Simulated assay, not measured.
Amino acid sequence: MDTNSPKSKEQFVHSVFESIAPKYDIMNDVLSFRRHKAWRKFTMKKMNIQPSNTAIDLCCGTCDWTISIAEASQTGNIVGLDFSQNMLDVGKVKVDRANLDRQIELIQGNAMDLPFEDNRFDYATIGFGLRNVPDLKRTLAEMQRVVKPGGMVVCLELSKPTWQPFKGIYYFYFQKILPMLGKILVKRYEQYKWLPESLAAFPGRYELADIYREIGLKDVQAYPLTGGIAALHIGIKER
């Protein structure tokens, strides 16, 4: 399917995540070499969330990170937003199981057009979702808009390794092996064939840091994770 236009990409990505929602957590392990939990733990340490802090977690998927943020905040209002209702349905089961349904609000919505006023949250996060949005700069600008002055915009995302031979091995895995695993494990080949294509068009670690600065975020930090196959980007909204 042609995903060159923003609308086509949006529709295709929506269909991908609606269809893989029940097996998304399993494939996250496969996609990240089972490292995504360690990456999230590192990210949470860098965020240093305090009791009563508020946050919006974009492209929250099945809500693992949303729940971690809520647990760290203890009492602060946490919003999980995703455009896939099927993903949110899986996430809601987890939220209810963790007894966090009063603290976490789940909303079906568009990351490029957040239904919140300016300066609302202490944190805006997006985990493994920025490469899927049609306009990543607009999404980051929206994240910046809804955080308070001094608030933090956080992106944890797959990235592009820069050193060989690891780079070659990783791309072979991502482009050749991963789609076949998707076909075997969740009976979805085309959807997981699309994932490496989404990464190919995504900016590298330094380019994304430059975009952070371009939209006006300050004190931008970019951390490579596991040889650069993922990266954490943090920026602060100007006070």
Rank of each mutant, 00 (worst) to 15 (best):
D118P: 07
G204S: 04
V220F: 08
T162S: 15
S15N: 06
P179A: 03
K37Y: 10
K167I: 01
N53S: 14
C63V: 08
G129T: 15
L156P: 08
L217C: 03
N86W: 01
E214L: 00
L130M: 15
K187N: 08
I107P: 10
S159R: 13
P196H: 06
E10F: 07
L31K: 04
R40D: 01
L31D: 06
E207I: 00
P196M: 06
G150R: 09
A124E: 10
D135F: 15
E18P: 05
V133Q: 11
L100F: 11
A124G: 13
I177F: 11
S68A: 12
K160S: 15
A124F: 11
N119Q: 13
R97W: 06
K237G: 04
T43E: 08
R34D: 14
V30N: 03
E105H: 12
A201C: 08
Y24T: 05
S198W: 09
D29R: 11
L114D: 12
M152Q: 12
A141T: 15
G168W: 10
V186T: 14
D135T: 12
F12P: 00
K193N: 08
Y206T: 11
P149Y: 11
A111D: 11
I78P: 07
D2K: 03
A21K: 04
P115M: 13
D64P: 02
E71H: 06
M1N: 07
Y123L: 15
V186L: 01
K176P: 00
I126L: 15
F17K: 03
K46N: 08
D82Q: 07
D96F: 01
M1E: 11
V95T: 02
T139A: 15
M1S: 13
D118W: 03
I126M: 15
H14P: 00
L232P: 05
G228E: 13
P224W: 10
I177S: 03
L58A: 03
R145E: 09
K187M: 00
I26Y: 09
T226Q: 08
Q144G: 14
P224E: 13
N48T: 09
Q11S: 11
I236P: 00
D2H: 01
I67N: 07
E157W: 10
G227Q: 04
Y192E: 01
P179M: 05
G235E: 07
Y223W: 09
L217S: 04
F12A: 06
D25P: 02
M44Q: 12
G182Q: 02
K167L: 02
A72E: 13
G182M: 03
G216I: 05
N4W: 02
D2L: 02
Y189L: 02
W65D: 13
D25Q: 06
N132M: 14
K167D: 02
Y212C: 04
M180Q: 13
G151W: 09
V79K: 05
H233S: 01
R35C: 12
N86G: 11
N53T: 03
V30F: 08
F174W: 09
V220L: 04
K218D: 05
M143C: 14
I229G: 09
M152A: 11
E197P: 01
T226Y: 07
F121L: 13
L130A: 15
V147E: 08
E105V: 14
K46H: 10
G235P: 09
R131N: 13
W194Q: 14
M180Y: 12
Y24E: 04
L181M: 14
G151R: 08
A124Y: 11
E105F: 09
R205K: 12
N53L: 02
